[in-house]
Design a protein around this nucleic acid. Structure first.
Lengths: 189, 189
DNA sequence: GTCTATAGAGTGATAGAC
DNA sequence: GTCTATCACTCTATAGAC
C-alpha cells in the first residue's frame, strides 16, 4: 500500500477547517476522517494523542502562520506603520474577509478552553503585545498603545462573531476600515 | 411523586449555564440532567423537542432578558444617554464583568449557528438597531450612529473573547470604559 | 380516572481510543 | 476494524394532585 505521506501542513489545514466549522466537540473523528480521506488508523499514526493532539497541532499551526505573517512584521518591520498595514491585510486575507471564523477565538469561548488555555493565551497575548509595540514605535505613548492594541484585537474578534451572526461580510470589512483609521493608517489601500 | 414544578425561568437559567460552559455539542443530556437534577423523563416532558428545543428556549430566554433590560431602555428611554448608560450597566452585570461568555455569540461561531441562525441574527440585529436609534437621538448622524452601534456591539463580543482567552477580567472592564467614552457618556458612573 | 411530573431501563447510532 | 462508553432519545411505569 503505502501511499505518499500527505504533507503535514496540508493535513493540518484540512483538520483545522473541520474544527473551525464544527468546534472541538462537534468535530468527530468520522468528520475528520472524511475530510482528510484518512482512516482512523492513519489519524492515530499521525496524532497518537488522538483528537486533543490534533487540536493542539492545529492551534500551533495557526499560531505559526500568525507568527510569520502578522507578529513578525509587527515586530521587525523598520516602518511600524508598514507592519500594521501588513497585519490588517494578512488578517483580512486569513479570515477571508469574514467568511472564516477564528478557531482560536472559538476555542476560547467553550470548555475546550481549559485544554488549550496556554496556547490560546499565548496567541492573543502575543498579538496584543506586538501590535502595541508597533503602535509605540509609531508614536503612541506606551499605555495608550497597549490599550489601543487590545481594542484592535478585540474589535477583530467581535467583528468575526457579528459578521457570522448577521451572515453579512460587510460587517467585517467595515470593522477593518474603522481599524485602519484608528490605528493611524490611510483609508483604503 | 409529583414534586413542585420547577420554575421554568430557573430551569432555563440552569440549562443556559450548561450550554454556556460546554457549547451546544458539548452539553450532553447527562450534564444537563445532572445540573438540573432532572431525569430524562422530566427533561423531555418540559422540552419534547429535546436538546434543540432546550437550546431554542434558552436563547429565547436570554433574548427576552436583553429585550427587557437592554433593548427596551435603548428604545424607550426619554433620555437616550440614560438608555445607553443603562445598556452598559446591564451588559456589565449580565456578563458578570467578563466572567460569563455570550452564549449567543458562541453559538454564532460554530455549526450550531445553522440551527439557530434566525434567533442569533435577530438578537444581534436588534441590539445594533436599538443602540443606533439611541445614538441618533443623542445627536449622531444616522449612518454614523449605525456604524458606531455595530462597533460597540462587536467590541463587547470581542472583549468577552479576549477576556476569556487571557483569563483576565480587566480586559472586559477596560473595554466597557472605552465604550462609555466612545458613546458619549461621562467616564465612570 | 385524569393529568402532570418523575425516574430510569433500554433503543440504535456513533463517539473516541486503540 | 474492534472495542467500550456515551450519545440523543423513546418508552413504560409510577407517583401524587385534582
Amino acid at each position: 500500500m503505502r501511499r505518499i505521506a500527505p504533507e503535514r501542513a496540508d493535513l493540518l489545514a484540512i483538520v483545522a477547517e473541520v474544527f473551525r466549522e464544527h468546534g472541538y466537540e462537534g468535530a468527530s473523528l468520522a468528520l475528520i476522517g472524511a475530510a482528510t480521506r484518512l482512516g482512523k488508523g492513519s489519524l492515530y499514526h499521525f496524532f497518537p494523542g488522538g483528537k486533543e493532539e490534533m487540536a493542539r497541532a492545529v492551534i500551533a499551526h495557526i499560531d505559526g502562520w500568525f507568527e510569520d505573517n502578522v507578529f513578525a512584521p509587527l515586530r521587525d518591520s523598520p516602518d511600524p506603520r508598514g507592519g500594521i498595514e501588513h497585519m490588517i491585510e494578512a488578517t483580512d486575507s486569513y479570515f477571508r474577509s469574514g467568511r472564516r471564523v477564528c478557531l482560536i477565538g472559538a476555542f476560547a469561548l467553550d470548555e475546550s478552553r481549559d485544554l488549550f488555555a496556554d496556547q490560546i493565551r499565548s496567541y492573543f497575548g502575543r498579538w496584543v503585545v506586538h501590535l502595541a509595540g508597533a503602535l509605540e514605535r509609531s508614536g503612541h505613548r506606551p499605555g495608550e498603545a497597549s490599550e489601543l492594541a487590545e481594542e484592535a484585537v478585540a474589535a477583530i474578534q467581535g467583528a468575526l462573531t457579528l459578521a457570522r451572526a448577521a451572515n453579512d461580510l460587510d460587517v467585517f470589512s467595515r470593522a477593518l476600515r474603522r481599524l485602519r483609521l484608528r490605528l493611524g493608517l490611510p483609508a483604503k489601500t
